[in-house]
């Protein structure tokens, strides 16, 4: 096969299909990281630069729960998800909200500052070494014929779908969820209905952080932990958020899956490093035709 003068290897349909399937599983993780990011963007209208760093911290939490206390990384979710919520809530309420004085550009820089501090803390406390959670089942899985899927991949996909669905229901059917949506579009109106806007900001930040904490649990069995691990996911998660439509949950999920599949097929044809170019290519292509993203609201 020939593409723009570059000769591409040709693969059987099964191989391509197999790549696409493993892309779905990878995309599920991207979606979950993007979910928290898109929620925080949708409500606070800020890009949270600390998101990747919070993912990294949560992955360390999962790692230490496993290495020190022998807690299974999936079971660790019961601890890191509430922990992530509380940490995110406190971080927003005590640092980000307090320093912002209501100005978005300051919030942006504060999240960047928080991420630098936390990352260097991790470097200092945990060193730059990669660490791995080892679970007895990490190579077990099912053979789909075209591709072999391990249980951690299945857990990541199922976990992401369940968490997205749960968050969607929460936003739709609970008073707090409705208050979050109200604050996202009409702060003054929300305040006059007795909604504590500062509290809702912190709740949103907490839920966003809880999402990355869940992602950390789902990632731990397959990815090594090191202080910069967050960037691996969060840069792609930014792409997913914009691609899916900023602030849209369904967009985050579909965008994550699109990027995951694109990346895996790109890697198959163009190799491990050049393959990542396909992410940018599909990103530009989609935005050319849908400037507000796949599920974005019209501006």
């Amino acid at each position: 096969m020939d593409f723009l003068g570059i000769s591409l290897p040709s693969y059987s349909l099964e191989t391509v299909f197999g790549s696409a399937i493993s892309g779905v599983f990878l995309g599920a993780i991207y979606a979950l990281v993007a979910l928290g990011l898109t929620l925080i963007y949708g409500v606070l209208h800020i890009i949270n630069f600390a998101h990747g760093t919070l993912l990294m911290l949560a992955m360390y939490a999962v790692f230490f729960l496993w290495s020190v206390f022998g807690v299974d990384p999936y079971l660790a979710m019961l601890i890191v998800v509430p922990g992530g919520y509380l940490f995110g809530y406190a971080l927003q309420r005590s640092v980000i909200g307090r320093t912002s004085h209501g100005r978005d550009e300051i919030i942006l820089l504060t999240t960047l500052g928080v991420s630098i501090v936390l990352e260097n803390f991790a470097l200092f406390a945990f060193s730059a070494n990669e660490r791995n959670v080892q679970v007895p089942y990490d190579f077990d899985g099912i053979d789909l014929g075209v591709v072999y899927i391990v249980w951690p991949q299945i857990a990541a996909l199922v976990g992401s779908l369940l968490i997205t669905a749960a968050l969607w229901c929460f936003m739709r059917f609970t008073d707090t969820g409705k208050a979050i949506r109200a604050v996202a579009k009409e702060r003054q109106g929300a305040r006059l209905m007795g909604i504590n806007v500062e509290h809702i900001f912190a709740v949103s930040f907490g839920i966003g952080t809880a999402c990355v904490a869940a992602a950390a649990s789902l990632l731990a069995p397959t990815y090594a932990v090191f202080p910069q691990v967050g960037y691996l996911f969060v840069l792609i998660a930014f792409t997913v958020v914009v691609l899916g439509g900023m602030g849209s949950f369904v967009g985050a999920l579909v965008g994550g899956l699109v990027i995951g599949v694109t990346e895996q097929i790109g890697r198959l044809y163009l190799g491990e490093s050049l393959g990542l170019i396909t992410i940018s290519a599909i990103f530009i292509l989609i935005l050319l035709f849908r400037p507000t993203g796949l599920f974005g609201q019209r501006l």
């Binding site: 008073d175 409705k178 208050a179 949506r181 109200a182 996202a184 579009k185 009409e186 003054q188 109106g189 929300a190 006059l192 209905m193 007795g194 909604i195 609201q297």
Partner: peptide, 23 residues
Amino acid sequence: PEGRRVFPNMSVRENLELGSYRR
């Protein structure tokens, strides 16, 4: 309030529901 300040991204039902968020 002046200018209504209803929640544009929510249904009429949800707007009314949030009227009783606190009280």
